[in-house]
Amino acid sequence: MPDQRVVPDLDMATIGRRLRSSMTGSGIVWVTVVLFAFLSLTTGPFLTEANLRNILDQQATLLIAASLATVAMIAGGFDISVSAVYVAAPLVALRVENSTESVLLAVVAGVLAGLVVGTVNGLVVAILKVHSFIGTLATSFMVFGAGYLISDRSILRPVSDSFRDVARTRWFTLTTATWIAFGVVLLTWFLLSRTRFGRHVYATGGNPEAARLAGVRVTGITIAVFMLSGAAAGLAGTVSASRSISAMPSDDFSFLFGVISAIVVGGTSIAGGEGGVWRTVFGAFFIALMINGFNLHQVDPIWQRVIQGLVILVAVGIDAWSRRRPR
């Protein structure tokens, strides 16, 4: 039989594969770069040092939490509790600061509070085998509630002036919040791409049973990623409190939505086993640039939401599409 008839069929498949891999490959980098160039050329106030510095500063807390939430996501864990930790951890931090007047202890306490919640999450998911989405939703409510208890339902403020320096000090024109985020991102990148722990995270998310049979301690990895994610959310909340020089209890889930948006728009798969922290960085900046552009062009905030929703849909759509194995 004529073999050349195979060719068109194969070609379509090849084109499909290439398209898929470029979309899931570095697509987010290109669209972010294009958006940046577009805004630079069309929008006067965009490419100014103050504006860019602001964008970086505003993204800092999101990136701190999202980096390690990405690790949890890659390991197959969905950490809903980042919002609750982000709200409650700084309340712990400020309580400690109020009583000890030590900024260092305050930051440590904020991170530790997140670590404790993360540990509980990890145990709930890995030992009780509750689906992470539900398990961390449940702990979220508990942590939100704990926030009200810790703060006595009131706004907490630092007693020392130096608490604000945690996020607001300027080094080489950038804020310390930005530098902390930079450090966390770099650390996460190193963890994921260079260490055995990182490999085990990918393996656990890619196929937990196969990972276990290959000797990966899947339970340990799962607990560890939730601990890291919790600690990072605690740090993010504390940095945020330093920036606003206060913290108050709430049950506001909106921080989570920013985190998840950055992760999925970046192209990390919600199915686990794939992704990277650099993706989350681009995802976060793509969204931030988009919103910045909207604001500079005075687009109605209501439409901003609609468009942001569409962007997320497109991102997860591409992920789902690329997962569909060509027959």
Partner: peptide
Amino acid sequence: RDQGLMARRSVRE
């Protein structure tokens, strides 16, 4: 497929 490989990871990994 179910117990052996992480399908989308590299041969090396």
